[in-house]
Amino acid sequence: MLTLKCPYCGVHADETELHPGSEAHLKRYGPGSSDDEFEGYLFMRENPKGVHFERWRHVYGCGKWFLAARDTNTLEVFGTYSAQTTEPPQEIKEAITAKRPGWSWREFQ
């Protein structure tokens, strides 16, 4: 069972109190983009065995969306952070590097 700390209300929320929201840090390609870019934005998702970044919503609590970094293989959580960001904060990256040296995920490493 996953337990994620909501960065907005500080509650250590059980997985059943949360709603998953797929992959984090998607860049939106809309009108004016190429077909390949739009297809990538719409359909192409990471499916790693290891470090992964996801969106979660604290649906039974404060109702806010936040982002989480975790390992899909071990369920280890590296940290959660505000959704108002386009890339993982430095301390999250450092926490992952400490546990999984040489990790990479999309353009982040």
Partner: peptide
Amino acid sequence: KGVAWMSPDE
């Protein structure tokens, strides 16, 4: 009478 914190804006 009371006031409760529900979320960062509620």
